[in-house]
Computed example of a mutant assay.
Amino acid sequence: MREANANGGTTGGSEAQAKDACLRLLTDRARSRSELAQALAKKGFEDDVAERALNRLVHVGLIDDASFAEQWVHSRHTYSGKGRQALALELRRKGIQQHHAEAALSQITGDDERSRAAELVRKKLRTLSVPSDPGERDKAIRKLVGMLARRGYGQALAFGVVKSELELAGGETDGLFEE
């Protein structure tokens, strides 16, 4: 919030205004401290005013990056099907410190990730036919692996899940993914 000063220039808003701006943003969804700092900077608040407002909100427990990271990881993994790699990138973009990100990501086990990837592949297989023609079959498999890769699943996991889900669905997997 910029206010005109006597010289016609602008100055940032008050700490109370910065706090109110943060509270309005927090009513939409939880946010990281970094996201709120960026929003305040965009609104024209001076750094020291924004820092004091953010510190106050941290002190009263309205900003908690560790809790935010845990909630974000749970939500995005459960509802959007994101893998650990994608979630790590999202947390980094949101300004979450490495130790908070690692703690939040540790709540997703390898089994959880594999299970969620399998659910995504099964869902996609309902609408995707896997032809018996090897060339066309390979295209369908690349689609499935690509879908998992875009959601942040590692290549080895993606190939393994696609192969096992195709086998369960009765698809031909001979000659695929030879090790």
Score class of each variant (00 low, 15 high):
residue 35 E to Y: 10
residue 86 A to F: 08
residue 21 A to P: 01
residue 24 R to C: 09
residue 176 L to C: 00
residue 168 L to A: 09
residue 44 G to R: 09
residue 23 L to I: 14
residue 2 R to Y: 13
residue 89 L to W: 09
residue 107 Q to F: 03
residue 149 A to M: 06
residue 155 Q to D: 09
residue 9 G to Y: 09
residue 79 Y to C: 09
residue 137 R to C: 01
residue 51 E to V: 04
residue 63 I to L: 15
residue 127 T to P: 02
residue 64 D to M: 02
residue 103 A to E: 07
residue 140 A to G: 06
residue 2 R to I: 11
residue 142 R to F: 00
residue 27 T to S: 15
residue 7 N to D: 14
residue 159 F to P: 00
residue 169 A to W: 01
residue 18 A to Q: 05
residue 10 T to A: 11
residue 39 A to S: 15
residue 75 S to F: 11
residue 85 Q to N: 12
residue 49 V to D: 03
residue 78 T to R: 15
residue 125 L to I: 12
residue 66 A to P: 02
residue 179 E to A: 12
residue 145 V to G: 02
residue 10 T to D: 06
residue 37 A to Q: 15
residue 34 S to K: 15
residue 170 G to K: 04
residue 41 A to E: 14
residue 69 A to R: 01
residue 85 Q to K: 15
residue 163 K to E: 08
residue 157 L to R: 01
residue 128 L to V: 07
residue 53 A to P: 06
residue 99 H to F: 11
residue 144 L to V: 03
residue 96 I to Y: 07
residue 147 M to I: 00
residue 104 A to V: 01
residue 169 A to R: 06
residue 4 A to H: 11
residue 83 G to A: 12
residue 79 Y to E: 13
residue 167 E to F: 00
residue 152 G to I: 04
residue 87 L to H: 12
residue 21 A to E: 10
residue 146 G to D: 03
residue 177 F to V: 04
residue 6 A to S: 11
residue 89 L to P: 03
residue 108 I to L: 15
residue 27 T to F: 09
residue 79 Y to Q: 13
residue 153 Y to W: 02
